[in-house]
């Protein structure tokens, strides 16, 4: 579904990605693992277009989307759950969700999307009229994912959804990610939490100093002791 080839990018003069290759298959969960500073978030930002790729290609269902700006990608059905959630804290849960369905294409499906989101996250339904800023960390992460769903995407890029959450909540978040896959969505996840994310993933890549050091099915990654020792620190 998503094919990334020789992707290079960075910030200003500093190059962070040195030729990233990865494939995301339809209706799968693919995880990119790696230590701090490996370029995980940079990879997602570059794929989504918040950062301009320096070179390389990004293909989405056979279409070259390398230099497409983020808002066009959302039209195509790609969205990003940004690191740090980026909710509208002074708006209610409901308004956050409605804002998420900003695009015409998404607005047409507003009712269906709301139904889906409230079925997936019954807690958000309970807190519908509450301000997003007053939710707990876990609920905020749920809302961030829910708002991304409101754009009626096919592919969701997630930047460290477990960040800053208690272990119990981490489990909950990953369970929802799994539910999204069951709904037919494709997910590209970037994570530091190795165990929890491998638990739900189908494929995994290990990013090391801006390059893919290893990639394959989850079992392959799990079994490769060397990889674990060298890059994951487990």
């Amino acid at each position: 579904m998503l094919t990334v080839r020789e992707l290079e990018s960075g910030y200003g003069e500093m190059q962070v990605l040195w030729g990233v290759n990865l494939d995301v298959r339809e209706k799968s969960i693919t995880t990119v693992l790696g230590p701090n500073g490996a370029g995980k978030s940079t990879t997602l930002k570059t794929i989504f277009g918040i950062l301009k790729p320096w070179s390389g290609t990004v293909e989405y269902i056979g279409e070259n989307v390398t230099n497409m700006p983020p808002h066009k990608k959302v039209e195509l059905g790609i969205t990003l759950v940004p690191e740090g959630r980026h909710l509208f804290p002074n708006m209610t849960v409901e308004d956050n969700l409605i804002m998420g369905a900003y695009l015409k294409r998404a607005e047409d499906r507003l009712e269906d999307s709301l139904d889906l989101v409230y079925t997936l996250f019954p807690r958000l339904k309970e807190r519908e009229k509450q301000k997003a800023g007053t939710l707990s960390g876990g609920e905020q992460q749920m809302l961030a994912i829910a708002r991304a769903l409101m754009t009626s995407p096919n592919l969701i890029l997630m930047d460290e959804p477990s960040q800053g959450l208690a272990p119990k909540l981490v489990k909950e978040v990953f369970e929802t990610v799994l539910k999204l896959k069951e709904e037919g969505l494709t997910i590209l996840l970037v994570e530091q939490n190795v165990f929890a994310s491998l638990e739900i993933s189908d494929y995994a890549y290990v990013l090391h100093e801006g390059k893919i050091a290893f990639g394959g099915s989850v079992d392959e990654v799990r079994e490769s002791e060397e990889i674990k020792k060298a890059y994951l620190g487990v």
């Binding site: 918040i50 959302v74 039209e75 969205t79 940004p82 980026h86 002074n90 708002r147």
Partner: peptide, 14 residues
């Protein structure tokens, strides 16, 4: 949306 959070506005497709 963009006044409240430019990053969020982008992922909404704005």
């Amino acid at each position: 949306a963009l006044r409240e959070d430019e990053e969020a506005a982008k992922v909404m497709g704005i």
